[in-house]
Design a protein around this nucleic acid. Structure first.
Lengths: 207, 207
DNA sequence: GCCGTATTAGAACCGATATTCTAATACTCG
DNA sequence: CGAGTATTAGAATATCGGTTCTAATACGGC
């Protein structure tokens, strides 16, 4: 079955993650990944057709792993409580995965996608996106009783945008999110969610 | 006095802004700026010593212009009211300057500073940073009665991070911020500011 | 009109970096 | 052991894009 591999995808992506976290995905060079992971460039190209594919893989893996737990936490009975649990989990995760947090919260998808992705990656991205949207829609339904565009946007704001906004500064400085920031964030999320919830009563269900 | 200029800084930076807004500052190429502004590369290098300096100039101008109005609005008598006025102004500005908004709210300083800036730019950046910090400190003093690190951070969250988080999605899609998003943002900022204000009573002034 | 100078113009150069290529290796299977 | 193959290894290549350079140009002042 051929020569056994000294450097597999795990090792290579590990190096790529470290390099990306340090200099940013856009400035990641294959040479740097080679140095960091120990693998020669030949081995890297043996696994990945191109730098772009490697970065796509890196990003999609990251999103998938993070999203999984986050969305799972959203499924509890009490929407307010589970929403806050999810946000709290983001804080914890940022503390326990500082490297991955840099990648996920300090960059956008496009920073990892140089031009246009090949179909395979676009498909995976769409799938992840779809899963998130479905979960958030379900969450909106439990919280407000409806899940139109407006509700979805509001929920996204409260559960996704707020956390990344609050945590960004600390992450940038390479620090763990302070308890203070976490408290402020959770309080803000709670009020936002309650504000959204209040629509249940005030506006009639559509259709 | 020599040949009159066909392409001055205004024209060149204009092209650079458009290109940056489209492909992002990191992928901005001199050739693209030349094409967009009509100026030949020679003329660009006649004005700017390097791509880095051009981008630095672009970014610093942008920040200076935006910051000026924003901070001015913060100076009103009633802190809560002026804070919200400032945030409202951000929304308006994003609507009236979609191109500049992309640059300012979708990117970070480092995206414009390839490696290390020459001293002149570092100085200007520090000056802008200092002005902002001073204004926010003064604002904190009016709102909470004190302006320690914690208050500053909370104010930054409410007045800077929240707006950019709320507006980012619309800006990314090239859309104007919807009234709905604006309402949600203002409501959230208001509660955040009130929450911060409440500390005035609950915790004693330091020193 | 002529001179000096700031500017235009774009071709040539050069370094950095992704990608390819060729050769050597180290295993497994028969 | 020998064939076959996946992998390592890194040197060679190709390309892209920033920067430099040389020549031409257009204007103000004398």
């Amino acid at each position: 079955m051929g020569r056994p591999a000294r450097f597999d995808e795990v090792a290579i992506l590990g190096g790529a993650r470290r390099v990306s976290a340090e200099v940013g995905p856009q400035k990641l060079t294959i040479a740097a990944v080679a140095e960091r992971s120990g693998a020669p460039v030949g081995s890297i190209y043996h696994r990945y057709a191109s730098r772009d594919e490697m970065l796509a893989e890196l990003w999609l893996d990251l999103v998938a792993v993070f999203q999984q737990r986050f969305l799972a936490l959203l499924e509890g009975d009490d929407p307010l409580r589970s929403g806050l649990a999810a946000v709290r989990h983001v804080c914890d995760w940022v503390r326990s995965h500082p490297l991955e947090a840099r990648l996920l919260l300090l960059h956008r998808r496009e920073d990892f996608a140089s031009d246009r992705w090949p179909a395979r990656y676009r498909r995976r991205a769409r799938a992840l996106e779809g899963r998130a949207t479905r979960s958030l829609r379900a969450y909106a339904l439990r919280l407000v009783g409806r899940a139109g565009a407006a509700e979805l946007r509001a929920i996204r704001f409260a559960l996704v945008d707020l956390p990344s906004a609050a945590l960004r500064r600390d992450i940038e400085m390479g620090a763990s999110p302070s308890n203070e920031v976490q408290r402020l964030l959770l309080a803000t999320c709670a009020t936002a969610l309650r504000r959204i919830e209040r629509r249940r009563a005030s506006a009639p269900r559509r259709g």
